[in-house]
Design a binder for these strands. Structure first.
Length: 493
RNA sequence: CGGGGCGUAGCGCAGUCCGGUUAGCGCGCAGCGUUCGGGACGCUGAGGUCGGAGGUUCAAAUCCUCUCGCCCCGACCA
């Protein structure tokens, strides 16, 4: 550790508030900071930063978060209280923040690699706190609750909440005159498309939302689903939900046959897909009635055109156009460029070279520890049990004597246990009086990287048996010098 | 918060519909003996507010009302 990287700052004078020597020295050494009477933080506050010369600054914490998750599920996957390692970065300008952000993405990637995880870094929605850029670390697993779209050619990858795509174009051609058609009882896009014998891509979907209680009209091509995260961001609202039937009819609209034509007094949002194709089928704003040959912008106007489409597998990558692929992932880390979102509000500034105060630019970087553990097991197991990746295994070695009433086995395994421990290895020793089947099955279940079996059978040849949990075969090595072999099989942590 | 399922011995369950001996079974646990390289066997034994409260009844694990908890699906989710 370099002192220049250490966050604490020593004081030149002894603070007058301190009476006893430990208090004085702790304060003076910069190890504690008083928050209130009888309340101390173990390091000074981040917002004591005064000079650009103290930046960049990185602070991390590992602590329990209580979030009272509304939907706990899946064991450690989704819990109400969880351990989180997070880090906050403080930079003087955009360029430095970018550098810090990239460095931390690299560092986090290394963490997940060492955990033995198959993961991808994806572009993510930055959520309620905003922020310019955000990435998630996704462990690929069928049990994952997030959908990832990644390019089959280039390295574009994004959470479906954020993902963009190139949509297929509908039929184009000369714009025809609007025709009214009867569509008795047909309400959904699927029903209308089937009834009129047109593909869904040739239809226009109208959806109504309540955004912080205000009605919003959304127009999107019929084959595409609205991405509510994108819509929420576009509207800048806190609460977004589908409008209720009453809200729709009170606004003078006809659910199932709603149309952007002739709308007024309501905010209209359009997805660019409505311009990809000509002569669409849209609602007629009368029950059981639709319109053919509706064209944007010839026939209706909107107030805001913005991408609010849900991307799907098979659509084009926004970078290179190659088809996108969908996978499921478990979010085990999330990083954000917060910028000055918090620091402006809290007056956390620094003085630049010219003595002018600017808000510090922040980043935040979190890893869910329990979920990481669960994700590691989702990916590393077989029908017998866990297969711990070495760096996160609770113990490196599972020492397993068979025949615990055999005096020779007992003596030699105790010696081996002592020796391995002395070598600095982490050893779990199965000293229970259990049958071989029970012990071996438990060894597979617990899944420590290396299993060491000592038995009358192996002792006949003066050997112990070594088996990596991730491999099928075991090897016999001489008991003498076994600890060297064992150490050699385990890359140091 | 909505929809579904489940709470009976440490664990896994049967019994509940149709109320009626002392609430069973498997695993585990304790003791003794045999066994000992892939979840051994025999004998003996311990272990229960049937999630909780109220009600109906001569009688409630079982019927009714309320309530708590857990699991799954959906809403939600730095």
């Amino acid at each position: 550790m370099r002192l220049s990287n250490l966050f604490g700052k020593t004081l030149r004078q002894t603070p007058a508030e301190a009476e006893n020597i430990s208090h004085q020295l702790l304060l003076k050494a910069g190890m504690i900071n008083q928050l209130a009477a009888g309340v101390y933080s173990y390091l000074p506050l981040a917002f004591n930063v005064q000079s650009y010369r103290d930046l960049p600054l990185l602070l991390y914490q590992i602590q329990t978060k209580f979030r009272d998750e509304p939907r706990p599920r899946g064991g450690l996957m989704r819990v109400r209280e969880f351990g989180m390692k997070d880090l906050y970065s403080f930079d003087a300008n955009e360029e430095c923040l970018n550098t810090t952000y990239q460095k931390l993405i690299t560092a986090y990637k290394r963490i997940y690699e060492r955990c033995g995880l198959d993961f991808v870094v994806v572009e993510a929605d930055s959520g309620a706190i905003g922020g310019k850029e955000s990435h998630e670390f996704m462990v690929l697993a069928e049990s994952g609750e997030d959908i990832i779209l990644s390019c089959s050619k280039c390295d574009y990858a994004a959470n479906v909440e954020k993902a963009e795509s190139v949509k297929p174009e509908g039929k184009t051609g000369e714009m025809l005159q609007i025709e009214q058609v009867a569509t008795p009882g047909r309400v959904t896009i699927e029903e209308v498309a089937n009834f009129l014998n047109v593909p869904e891509i040739q239809t226009l979907k109208a959806v109504f939302y309540a955004a912080d209680g205000v009605m919003v009209f959304v127009a999107i091509r019929g084959d595409i689903e609205v991405n509510e995260v994108k819509l929420k961001n576009a509207l800048g609202c806190h609460e977004l939900r589908l409008a209720t039937e009453d809200e729709v009819s009170n606004a003078g609209l006809v659910a199932g046959s709603a149309s952007p034509l002739g709308l007024s007094g309501i905010k209209r949002i359009g997805d660019p897909s409505i311009a990809l194709g000509a002569n669409l089928v849209a609602g007629g704003n009368k029950p059981d009635t639709h319109l053919r040959n509706v064209n944007y912008p010839r026939d209706f106007a909107i107030d805001l055109m913005v991408d609010i489409a849900t991307a799907r597998a098979g659509e084009g990558c926004p970078i290179c156009g190659a088809p996108l692929i969908a996978k499921k992932g478990i979010e085990v880390g999330h990083v954000f460029k917060l910028g000055s979102f918090f620091t402006e509000r809290m007056g956390a500034t620094f003085l630049d070279r010219d003595g002018v105060a600017y808000p510090i630019l922040m980043g935040c970087y979190g890893i869910g520890i329990g979920r990481l553990l669960a994700a590691a097991i989702e990916q590393n197991h077989d029908e017998k049990g866990i297969i711990w990746p070495i760096p996160i295994a609770p113990y490196q070695v599972h020492l397993c004597p068979l025949s615990s009433d055999n005096q020779e086995v007992v003596t030699k395994v105790e010696n081996l246990y002592a020796e391995l421990t002395r070598e600095g290895l982490e050893v779990i020793f199965d000293d229970r009086e259990e049958s071989p089947g029970v012990k071996l099955n438990d060894a597979d279940l617990l899944g420590m990287p290396l299993r060491v079996v000592l038995s009358p059978r192996s002792l006949k040849s003066g050997s112990v048996e070594l088996k990596m949990r991730c491999k099928k075969e075991a090897v016999l090595v001489p008991l003498d010098g076994a600890s060297r072999e064992i150490t050699a099989m385990l890359p140091s942590k």
